[in-house]
Design a protein around this nucleic acid. Structure first.
Length: 262
DNA sequence: ATGGTAGGAAGCCTA
């Protein structure tokens, strides 16, 4: 079998972005696509044109805000909606499922700005819950890919203007400490593992000509369990969709998971 | 220059 290509993309409204998503699926042909910020309910998700391209779908939608999905050319099994750890949290930011030999999740981690609002502590406690859930998942000792918009700039070199972002929720020490907690569990960040010295971004603001100036940040990530990291093939950021008409402000990040060794 | 742009909802919020 060919390697499994797994991509993550914050589409910023699946309705507004449908032409961009369809052409990207047809061109990039990911086996699994982890989407975030759908901004639609489950009922309003555009299943038909996506299924016509050969994708199965698992959606955890929400009106106006949030919403995540898993698209897969192979069957989707054992779908789990919502991040465990707080039954009172009704924001649709997490969906998990098994595809072939790999467990995958599509994650839309809270932004956390402004930091003097309740949004910042929500981000931090959400990350605490993610750390706890990742710890549970790693106990299974299986191939696991946690992909999504983490709203975390891991290091200053992942940002075009570190001083300008120093007090941003994407960079603050409490946010980065929780990001490192995920890494300390034994998760491997795919892009940095494959490209130790590269500067590359996955998000550019719509404002101020950020794309044209390459004023970007790298906040979309793929975190791999040891069993997935052992099978890691190529990793890259596909800048093409960001340069098109009516783009998302994010662009896809993808990796290959090779077949299991015999 | 505490602006600017995009999306969705409904005349503001989120990013």
């Amino acid at each position: 079998m060919a390697p499994m290509k797994i991509a993550t993309w914050n589409v910023n409204s699946i309705k507004a972005r449908l032409p961009r998503v369809l052409e990207w699926l047809a061109e990039a042909k990911p086996d699994v696509a982890l989407l975030q910020e759908l901004k639609v309910t489950d009922e309003a998700f555009p299943y038909e044109p996506i299924e016509e391209l050969g994708y199965n779908t698992a959606v955890h939608g929400q009106k106006t805000y949030n919403g995540v999905a898993i698209l897969s050319k192979r069957p989707i099994e054992d779908v789990q909606r919502g991040l465990p750890g707080d039954d009172g949290d009704d924001q649709a930011r997490y969906i998990e499922a098994v595809v072939d030999t790999v467990r995958v999740a599509s994650i839309y981690l809270p932004n956390g700005n402004p930091t003097d609002s309740e949004k910042y502590p929500y981000k931090l406690t959400w990350m605490d819950r993610l750390v706890e859930h990742a710890r549970d998942l790693l106990m299974h000792e299986e191939a696991l890919v946690l992909g999504g918009d983490y709203n975390i700039i891991p290091e200053d070199r992942d940002c075009y203007d570190p001083p300008g972002f120093a007090s941003d929720a994407l960079c603050l020490p409490e946010s980065r400490a929780r990001w490192r907690q995920l890494l300390y569990l034994g998760l491997t960040e795919a892009f940095r593992a494959r490209h130790p010295d590269l500067t590359a971004y996955s998000y550019w603001d719509y404002q101020g000509g950020a794309w044209q100036k390459d004023n970007g940040v790298r906040i979309d990530h793929l975190l791999l369990s040891p069993q997935a990291a052992d099978r890691l093939g190529e990793v890259d950021i596909d800048r093409t969709p960001r340069g098109r008409e009516r783009p998302s402000d994010h662009t896809p990040v993808w990796c290959e998971i090779d077949d299991e060794a015999l």
